[in-house]
């Protein structure tokens, strides 16, 4: 029996265990951190010879499975705030429509790729760096003594969101907030995700943690719930307009990723919020460093 499988849309033959293993690895990250993993999976698929457009579209398809599996696992643990998830999702959809228009304008102006990559590096560096330092401080505090409640001056952001109308209680997250906040933040992430061409999980998670002040475990479950719907729409649109979804590729990846997502969720239960954040921050910083290196070093082949 051959261990290879030919992908009919990618026109490429790949090793079965390698693809399933890759899916499993990224699935663990998905279950652990609530990210879709597209920012990691797509470059890895390109590295093994899958055309970039097919890699991105098929990855969206497999994320549907991984996030379904992950959402179910987190739902069972009571970690999904559906109310917050819907608000972020609606904002995200509006934002992604705006983002796609911004990309069109950027492409007409030229150098869109440059702006996209720089946005990517800055976002990854900023988000990863902040999360890393913040969770490092958190870990140090818990390792010494319980911190005294600091009489912090309320920031302009906190004062602003407290003044917003239509406050409602997000029970799972344990916060009272105007739905305008997640709608606007979801919109912002949607814009960035559309510009950067990713699902946006790795931006959404820090936004929920730091700007919506949601508990880390609810963040992961809610993020997966939101990613599920984003990826369903991306898969259908890519299949219809570009014919770039390779169902064989997605199927093999999802065999690994759905199992990985469950393992990730179980691992996540054993870690505290700061440990989870520092791990995600490290991952984001590693991806950023890799991107930065590939930007600075002359590539072997200039055509791609």
């Amino acid at each position: 029996m051959s261990w290879h499988i030919y992908l009919p849309i990618a026109h490429h033959s790949v090793l079965l265990p390698a693809l399933i293993g890759l899916g499993f690895l990224v699935g663990i990250l998905s279950g652990l951190f609530g990210v879709g993993g597209g920012f990691l999976m797509t470059p890895l698929l390109i590295m093994i010879g899958i055309p970039p457009t097919v890699a991105a579209a098929s990855d969206s398809n497999q994320i549907v499975a991984a996030s379904t599996s992950g959402t179910l696992a987190h739902y069972r643990l009571g970690n999904v705030d559906f109310k917050m998830g819907w608000c972020l999702l609606i904002g995200g959809i509006i934002g992604s429509v705006v983002g796609v228009q911004i990309i069109k304008v950027l492409r007409q102006m030229g150098n869109a790729d440059f702006l996209i990559t720089i946005t990517y590096v800055v976002m990854l560096g900023g988000v990863g760096g902040y999360m890393f330092l913040e969770s490092l401080q958190g870990l140090r505090k818990t390792s010494t003594e319980p911190a005294k409640p600091a009489a912090k001056k309320k920031s302009a952001y906190v004062r602003l969101i407290r003044r917003l109308p239509y406050k409602t209680r997000f029970a799972k997250s344990g916060i009272v907030l105007s739905p305008i906040v997640p709608l606007v933040l979801g919109g912002g992430v949607g814009i960035l995700a559309a510009i950067m061409g990713v699902g946006g999980g790795f931006i959404m998670v820090p936004v929920m943690v730091y700007l919506l002040r949601m508990p880390m475990h609810v963040v992961v479950g809610t993020s997966l719930f939101q990613i599920l719907f984003t990826c369903i729409s991306v898969t259908i649109l890519q299949a219809y307009f570009n014919q770039t979804v390779d169902v064989f590729l997605a199927l093999l990846l999802l065999i690994g990723s759905t199992s990985g997502a469950q393992v990730g969720t179980k691992l996540g239960k054993k870690l505290n919020a700061d440990q989870l954040k520092i791990l995600l921050a490290s991952l984001v910083l590693i991806v950023m460093a890799k991107m930065l290196i590939s930007l600075v070093l002359k590539p072997d082949v200039l055509l791609s």
Binding site: T68, T235, L254
Partner: peptide, 21 residues
């Protein structure tokens, strides 16, 4: 393309749900 996209999503949803269950 549309039917293919819908089938791909259905396959992913069912697989994810089965593994979850």
């Amino acid at each position: 393309g549309l039917i293919y996209g819908l089938l791909s999503v259905a396959m992913a949803l069912i697989s994810g749900a089965i593994i979850g269950i």
